[in-house]
Amino acid sequence: MAALLRLDGVTKSFGRVTVAEKLTLSVEAGEALGIVGPNGAGKSSLFAMISGDLRPDGGAVWFGGREVTGAPPYARTRAGIGRTYQVPRPFEHLTVFENVLVCAHQGAGLRGGRAQAHAMDVLERTGLAALANTPGGRLTLLQRKRLEVARAVGTAPRLLLLDEVSGGLTEPEVAELVAVVRGLHADGLAVVWIEHVVHALVKTVGRMVCLAGGAVVADGEPMRVLADPKVRELYLGGGPETETTTGEEERP
């Protein structure tokens, strides 16, 4: 079977900074892939090129058997790519329910009562149901991170892109979020997850890729990738954070 997502020799640079150098990567349907790498490795740019927020200088992006290299973000969302943003971008004046409902309308193509039922279902799954009537702008960081996931799931994706959804959260909060993602993956959703909090990743993904300088340094079973000398060297000998501390601070 053809891969769900395939990046074929994707290249992108901003002036002298290269964020993708002939990057080739595939994700199968239903797979869970973790992506690690030092800051500036090109992780978020990779997501932006998959979701359409950024256009590569060269190479091609394929999704579900179709080339989407030049397709705008909304078209990719409708095709089945749902993404979250590292720094949450809620629709601040819409309620949590409306935040997800608009995704059900526009991303999943649902209408009326079906869209509403779907939105409510997504809120249940992401633990936001009690906050359905709360404006997006009034949420705490954990709730905003959950809303990012809820909106992405609201578009009824086949592939879920998670960009550091654990960053800035406390340990119990990370555990809650990991449980949500594991549940979604268990239902057959393919997940690509960028994360600094590596122990959160290891619990969920079956495969891990380490990026540096816009290229794949290691690709394979998570513990092996983490044990790889090249990967350990990238993290200045200390290895990726496997302790309970969290990633970069990004509390709004």
Binding site: T77, R78, R89, L94, H105, Q106, A108, G154
Partner: peptide, 19 residues
């Protein structure tokens, strides 16, 4: 609803599937 989402956050609106 789409317009209000665009008003609040244009980039996220694109990712929500809004043209």
């Amino acid at each position: 609803l789409s317009l209000m989402a665009v008003r609040d956050e244009e980039t996220a609106a694109g990712s929500a599937g809004i043209d």
